[in-house]
Amino acid sequence: MMEINKKSPIPIYFQLKQIILNRIKKGEWLPDSPISSERELSEMFGVSRMTIRQALNELVSEGILYREKGKGTFVREQRIEQSDAMSFTEAALNQGLEACNIVKNFEIEVADMSVMERLGLDNYEDVYYIQRFRTIEKMIIGVEEMYIPVKYIGNIKKDDFKGSVYKLLKDKYDYSIDHVKTTLEAVITGPDELKLFNLKEPAPILKVTAVHVTDKGLNLYYEESLYRSDKYVFNVNIYRR
């Protein structure tokens, strides 16, 4: 068991936070299960309940834990929260989650009418079709299909898409994504999604369709994705014009 180092310059409450997070990551405290009480934690680590409460309050505000009046403090089921033009990988890293992209399909095909219209293409042009499974902590929570015109990125490899697409496009081609034209809708899982997401019965999932636009106004690529709604939250700012 990790111990509190009272001689360390690192605040005691922060050390305690890291110990709790480590226990959750190791599976010692499972989602929706209670953690030890403030009194138990105080006795366990030899620190005041005020310090314990400070650590727990921060973990509650960060969405790691939640409280139920009269019952205690529980581990919250972790969901990735994505906001605005932030990539999935960036969002996961910001929350301290282990994200991975599994590239299942990578090929060149001729754009269909839907892709042509969304990307503003004049002809039936070649596009890269990339299908990726999105995982958090080794669990598949989403499947993404992307269509990127070959003329915009030239020669590229399958393995290039294992990381953040935004970072890839910026580092290799100097494209900066400025905004994303997005449509969100709830749909019910079909047989393929039930198997992919390891669900026992049909459930609502989130369908995302999006055109990613550069700072120069170029519709760079089109995306269609499905995400488990119990594992993924998409935050949107809506302004009244």
Rank of each mutant, 00 (worst) to 15 (best):
L93K: 11
E145R: 10
N219I: 08
R228L: 12
S225F: 06
Q95P: 12
P149Q: 01
C100S: 14
F161Y: 04
A186E: 14
F14Y: 12
V127K: 00
S87E: 07
D84H: 11
G70D: 07
S42G: 13
D215W: 07
F45K: 04
G46L: 08
Y239F: 14
K104G: 02
I4R: 02
D122W: 07
L93S: 10
V233Y: 01
V115W: 00
Q15P: 01
E90Q: 13
L226K: 02
A85H: 15
G163E: 07
F45T: 08
L59K: 01
E40S: 13
P31K: 13
E201Y: 10
R79S: 11
Y128A: 01
V150D: 01
Y239T: 15
V236G: 03
D192V: 15
I188G: 01
E98I: 15
K181T: 15
K195F: 10
K7A: 15
F74K: 05
G27N: 04
I148K: 00
L97A: 04
G27L: 04
S229A: 14
Y13N: 10
Q95E: 14
S48W: 07
L56H: 05
K231G: 03
N123Q: 10
E224L: 07
W29Q: 04
E43F: 13
K170F: 12
E185F: 06
I108R: 09
V110T: 14
V165P: 00
F14A: 10
Y232S: 01
M50I: 13
A203Q: 14
V211R: 01
P202I: 15
D84G: 15
E117G: 04
E3G: 12
K6Q: 11
G163Y: 08
K71G: 11
E224W: 04
I35R: 02
V143H: 00
E3L: 13
A203V: 15
T89W: 06
K216M: 08
R67I: 09
L119E: 00
D32V: 10
Y128S: 02
D32C: 08
I52F: 05
R67V: 12
K104N: 11
Y222S: 01
Q78E: 14
I148M: 00
L56E: 03
L206R: 05
I12F: 06
I52R: 00
N237C: 08
